[in-house]
Design a protein around this nucleic acid. Structure first.
Length: 725
DNA sequence: AGTTCTGTTC
């Protein structure tokens, strides 16, 4: 069939046009359905309900985001709707439903809703189209609300209603609603066929209830391609690559041919990208944009950015998802230069970043030098309406708090109408991160007043704030809250508690908390080890190091920092040197500046100045002022004036802000009785505007009775009246 | 003649 046939069809009657429309399968020119319709009007034929039903179906099947810009399509659909109303066809429920569904497929939920409201009568299918449409367009809550409304108005939901709603429950991890839906289906006596079981099975998988989803899969009498794909996806999403692979092989043994979705499910399971890549080539799917996109994503996820870029260059269509994946992998490395290069590419391709893309860019801004770029992206988000997205706002809050811009954080926060828990958490942890823990506690009080309940993340951030401020009582109150409300104790909370107690002077409490944790993770071990170190209980720090390895854990850089500083404190040269060797040779961990500083201090305290200097000269990274200061500190112990003066000179030019060396130098001169020099250094210190990092003391003034009274009733209330000196 | 299940970027 071609255009000429249409043009020469003047006297063939309406049924001819109907057969033309129904033979359209979507792979031909997307403009044809409308061209046929115009031709029909030119031939003075009277379109009836069937004509419109066929036209909408053909139109819908021609639709794909690549073929049509949705703005053009929207205009054309509304023209069709006008015709439909003018000819009185809108009395037919099924035609309206077809149109409603098409609006939903275009993502035009408002048009679809208006049409639904205007419909003279509705049936179960129109309700289904509306509900499933909202569900597909990520309005899960609206879809669920309409389900209830549908019941109230006396309609009986069927098969399709449940099948359409299940994915919404899955996407938002609404396990309770999902299970109710399942229960509703059973009570309503709906037959559970393969399609319904597929929908429920993947809903359970997304809600992390893999057992339920396996059960449904196993009791299926016939498994179609979608069933297998869902199960492969279910295993993949829950981190069972092995099972996903076995499932894939079983599917092949059953004689089914994998579809593009099969490949994408395997890719999302984090399979080896190379082998799936081969399979994709063998199956001839290299031109399938979504498959290649998934492959790009997998390569980036595994850090093989270069492969992803190569693949992207050969992608049949430019797409935002691939670009987002590549940008985010650069962002993860903090390589903003490459991120911006790719951003420019998106602009040249006339692609607009979406919330996910913007969020991944924001994640990459760690370096203060890139802060201005971050603000530019904030502006981009504002201009493109992305800042209404809660996730983006959270991303911005973390961005500004990373650079201690608490005022900006407060502004962003106040502008949010709905504040979910994650937002409160972002703000609180942001303040703590910026060293403004009192503000964090203020926000926490507001949070309690607004009725929001804290979770383990909130509590951990606040505990970290208490450690910074030395607020033992507040920390204890939070500890009480953890116990009374069964906040998940292990890992984060436990670690934060131990850290708080050690930093607030109660090693004994820290030990009690540690002993109560059944299976401490590495971070928890690290915090108790560092605790022992700072209290000078070296032998316990070392036995912690041994014990964690007996539990099958591997020490990391922080563990080694703990034991190394224990050695420095205790002047244990041999042990320190050995730990340093083990760290590098047995665990392949590159020392950071702090590890180097420990070793320099250790050598210095042992009086091995020559070795210490040589050690610094052989460092793999540029030594910072802390490394030199730890040597200078050793000089004052050993009264090593000459080297000390030399170091002070060096430090003076290196790090103006760090005034610690003035103090060290003056101590050094004092020890050997060079009082003139002491006075000279003190003058220099005054001239440079203090020592640059004056200490601040603060006393916690909280009424413990108040706190406890409130604990019993509304949970925690914190009085953060504090006095700063 | 209208509705429904599986997949990609955080």
């Amino acid at each position: 069939m071609n255009a000429c046939t249409v043009w020469s069809s003047k006297t063939r009657g309406i049924s001819f046009f109907h057969s033309l429309l129904s033979s359209y399968n979507g792979s031909q020119n997307a403009k044809w359905p409308l061209a046929i319709f115009r031709q029909l009007l030119n031939a003075n034929e009277n379109p009836d309900d069937l004509t419109f039903a066929l036209l909408i179906k053909a139109f819908a099947s021609s639709f794909s985001s690549d073929a049509y810009s949705s703005a053009v399509t929207e205009l054309q659909v509304s023209q069709v709707q006008t015709q439909l109303v003018r000819r009185g066809i809108n009395q037919f429920v099924y035609v309206n439903t077809a149109l409603l569904d098409f609006y939903m497929k275009l993502g035009l939920t408002t048009n679809a809703r208006q049409l639904f409201e205007d419909m003279p009568c509705r049936d179960v299918v129109s309700w289904n189209a509306l509900i499933c449409g909202y569900s597909r367009n990520d309005y899960g809550n609206v879809a669920l609300g309409l389900f209830v409304q549908m019941l109230r108005e006396g309609f009986r939901p069927d098969h399709a209603t449940i099948v359409g709603l299940a994915p919404a429950c899955g996407r938002f991890e609404l396990i309770l609603q999902g299970r109710s839906l399942h229960g509703f289906g059973i009570k309503a006596g709906l037959g559970f066929d393969g399609q319904l079981k597929n929908a429920l099975s993947s809903m359970y998988a997304k809600c992390e209830n893999l057992e339920a989803s396996e059960l449904l899969f196993e009791e299926m009498s016939e498994r179609n391609l979608v069933s297998w794909n869902s199960m492969i996806g279910a295993y993949g999403q829950n981190g069972f690559l092995e099972k996903a692979t076995i499932c894939f092989k079983e599917m092949l043994n059953g004689g089914l041919r994998p579809s593009p979705v099969t490949m994408m499910s395997l890719l999302s399971a984090n399979a080896a990208p190379e082998s799936i890549h081969c399979y994709i080539i063998k199956c001839g799917m290299t031109n399938h944009a979504s498959v290649v996109t998934s492959l790009v994503c997998l390569y980036t996820r595994q850090g093989l950015t270069h492969m992803a870029e190569l693949l992207y260059k050969h992608l049949p269509t430019n797409n935002l998802i691939s670009l987002t994946a590549i940008m985010s992998s650069y962002a993860e490395k903090g390589d903003m230069k490459s991120v911006v290069e790719y951003f420019i590419q998106t602009q040249q391709l006339d692609l607009k970043l979406d919330a996910v893309a913007l969020l991944s860019v924001l994640h990459g801004i760690i370096n203060p030098a890139h802060f201005a770029v971050g603000r530019a992206f904030h502006a981009y988000g504002l201009k493109n309406g992305l800042t209404t997205d809660g996730l983006v706002t959270n991303g911005l809050i973390s961005l500004y708090s990373k650079f201690d811009e608490i005022e900006a954080v407060s502004c962003l926060f106040l502008e949010m109408s709905y504040k979910p828990l994650i937002t409160w958490n972002s703000v609180i942890s942001g303040c703590v991160h910026a060293g403004k823990s009192s503000e964090a506690l203020d926000f926490f009080c507001q949070m309690k007043k607004s009725g929001q309940k804290p979770d383990a993340i909130t509590i951990s951030s606040l505990l970290c704030g208490c450690s910074q401020l030395g607020y033992l009582r507040t920390g204890q109150t939070l500890h009480n809250y953890v116990i009374r409300n069964n906040v998940e104790m292990e890992d984060f909370t436990g670690t934060a508690l131990i850290d708080m107690y050690t930093k607030c002077g109660r090693l004994d409490y820290a030990e009690k908390v540690f002993d109560s944790i059944i299976d401490p993770c590495l971070a928890t071990w690290n915090s108790i080890i560092s605790g022992y170190t700072s209290y000078g209980v070296e032998h316990k720090a070392f036995s912690g190091y041994n014990e964690l390895q007996n539990q099958g854990l591997q020490p990391d850089k922080i563990t080694f920092l703990g034991v190394l500083s224990a050695c420095t404190h205790g002047g244990l040269l041999c042990e320190g040197t050995e730990y340093f060797r083990i760290m590098m040779e047995e665990y392949g961990l590159m020392p950071d500046l702090q590890h180097y500083a420990c070793m320099v201090g250790l050598l210095g305290r042992a009086g091995l100045f020559h070795e210490a200097v040589e050690f610094i000269n052989n460092m793999k990274i540029q030594p910072d002022s802390a490394v030199w200061i730890s040597l200078l500190s050793a000089c004052s112990i050993h009264q090593e004036i000459k080297l000390g003066e030399c170091l002070a000179n060096k430090l003076f030019f290196m790090d103006q802000r760090n005034g610690g060396f003035y103090v060290l130098m003056s101590n050094l001169y004092a020890i050997v009785g060079r009082w003139d020099d002491v006075a000279r250094v003190r003058d220099m210190m005054r001239d440079s505007g203090g020592d640059g990092c004056s200490g601040v003391s603060c006393i916690e003034v909280t009424s413990i009775e108040d706190l406890n009274n409130n604990l019993g009733t509304n949970g925690v209330y914190l009085n953060t009246d504090t006095m700063h000196y």
